[in-house]
Write a protein that binds this DNA or RNA. Structure first.
Length: 462
RNA sequence: UCCUCUGUAGCUCAGUCGGUAGAGCGGGUGGCUGUUAACCACUAGGUCGGCGGUUCGAGUCCGUCCGGAGGAGCCA
């Protein structure tokens, strides 16, 4: 597709310039002697208004075929529009119809559709305002994420999608196998994985963190940004079986440096989003959730609160709110607790640290009190946890002890432990789910609507 | 996996006490207007998710299966 694109045309000086524009017709309004067309090419939310006078060659043949959804090329003159709704419009001189869209059958007519229905036509939904805006915001956010890390000298590491470790413990895994399922080779009743493709039981990754740490412990600062798979039978507005995750890992960096990085990171990408995707963000703010822009602006401008878990528990115990889940030191915080802290107590993002070791992963660095670990969760108003991270345990003996405590086998982690044996360094990192981030900035309620082709439990229609 | 709700026209929904179905939007036709959520008139669309049962009679009641949504758990 060649330009100029409608995004740029709308900013051009309307000086009778001859241009050509391609796109899909969103709607048409006929008069006796001319027609108005709203043309969209995906470059932006706005349409370009086209006027086709009935004197244009072939008018009577093509005009009834220029229906919603049909694709055209229009050559014409860009002029100033006399009406208020737009600055410029295109006076067509030549019309080329590429593809018709039978209005009796094409379901995306100009009318509202529920997101639920649009999920059943995932191949057509990017042609709607909402889903094209989501696609642009997703793309832009990916770019800002890369740019943030690249500007800071982080190395982008491609961690494997297929892994042999069934030991990551972050969730149910999808097994990868070429064994014949109708006749699985077994020895003494147990599956013989030596005959499988990799010679070992293999799965799709649930996290690139452990592999990421190996590269961080050589290159300094790294990040991953790739697909992640969880085979959990979750059926919620916040879970996917296939989603994208960002996981930076920083060496010579403690929990405080980790918090600094997470805060700077969020502020950077949100600021870029508001500055560069204003039209799409205004749309979300108007049509989806009218708090998102104010919310993002306050996150950009406010300093995040930093609070230890123990302090947060005290704060919650002090409150008069009747929580569904009672508060007590040692519990994992429920989303009602997180929301209370971010929305009622502080009214801004809160970074909670130093959680009880029992409710956190084995690789998090143990504090001197032997009870808490250097975990950090970044909580934001409305969503709750947006980032989870920690300083990693860098002492081999302590790490082995924690692995055993969690009933895991240290032998499975031999290479991960060697990072602590040879040139171990304090290091930290965090992870964030990309789709939840997109949900947060767009206000979209269902995670299946912020990824082009959602994969979820019992759901893979496209 | 559990709990709740839901399935009627292309889409969004209404349908009373069980008596063979309606609206809005969208589509078609005609009219009108520098229109822009266009407007006005007319018009065509339905195996009421599938199967079984109760009944003289089921969109409506019962059973079951399938699909969808929301919540819980788990998590990102």
């Amino acid at each position: 597709m060649k330009g100029p694109f409608i995004k740029d045309i709308l900013k051009m000086n309307p000086d009778n310039k001859e241009i050509s524009v391609c796109g899909w017709i969103r709607t048409k309004r006929d008069s006796k002697s001319f027609s108005f067309i709203e043309l969209n090419d995906g470059s932006c939310m706005s349409n370009l208004q086209i006027i086709i006078d009935s004197s244009v060659k072939g008018y009577n043949e093509f005009i009834n075929k220029l229906t919603t959804g049909s694709s055209v090329k229009i050559d014409g003159k860009l002029v100033k529009s006399p009406a208020k709704e737009q600055n410029v419009e295109l006076h067509a001189e030549n019309v080329t119809l590429y593809g018709e869209a039978d209005p009796e059958k094409y379901v995306l007519q100009k009318k509202r559709h529920t997101f639920e229905y649009l999920r059943t036509i995932a191949h057509l939904r990017p042609r709607t305002n909402t889903f094209s805006a989501i696609a642009r915001v997703r793309s832009a956010m990916s770019f800002y994420i890369h740019r943030f890390f690249q500007e800071k000298g982080f190395v982008y590491v491609h961690t494997p999608i297929i892994t042999s470790s069934d030991c990551e413990g972050a969730g149910a895994m999808f097994q990868v196998t070429t064994l014949p399922l109708e006749n699985i080779p077994k020895t003494n009743g147990k599956i013989n994985f030596e005959e499988d493709f990799f010679g070992k039981k293999s799965s799709l990754t649930v996290s690139g963190q452990l592999e990421g740490e190996t590269y961080a412990c050589a290159l300094g600062n790294i990040y991953t940004f790739g697909p992640t798979f969880r085979a959990e039978h979750s059926n919620t507005t916040r879970h996917l079986a296939e989603f994208w995750m960002i996981e930076p890992e920083m060496t010579f960096c403690d929990i405080n440096g980790n918090m600094d990085a997470a805060e700077e990171f969020l502020k950077y990408i949100f600021k870029n989003l508001l500055e560069n995707c204003r039209e799409d963000m205004d749309f979300f703010n108007t049509r989806i959730d009218n708090t998102i822009i104010a919310n993002l602006e306050s996150i950009i401008n406010e300093e995040f609160v930093r609070l230890k878990y123990t302090e947060a528990i005290k704060e919650l115990e002090k409150s008069k709110v009747a929580f569904e889940f009672p508060v007590k030191w040692g519990i994992d915080l429920q989303s009602e607790h997180e929301k209370y802290l971010t929305e009622q107590v502080f009214k801004k993002p809160v970074i909670l640290t130093d959680y009880p070791k029992e409710i956190k992963a084995f690789y998090m660095k143990l504090n001197e009190d032997d009870k808490t670990v250097r975990a950090m969760d970044v909580l934001v108003p409305r969503l709750g946890e947006i980032i989870g991270g920690s300083e990693r345990e860098d002492n081999e003996q302590k790490l082995v002890k924690r692995i055993k405590q969690m009933n895991l086998n240290p032998e499975d982690y031999w290479w991960y432990l060697e990072l602590r044996r040879y040139g171990s360094v304090p290091h930290s990192g965090f992870g964030l789910g990309f789709e939840r981030l997109i949900q947060f900035v767009t206000g979209m309620q269902n995670i299946r609507d912020v990824i082009p082709f959602p994969r979820a439990f019992k759901s893979i229609d496209f």
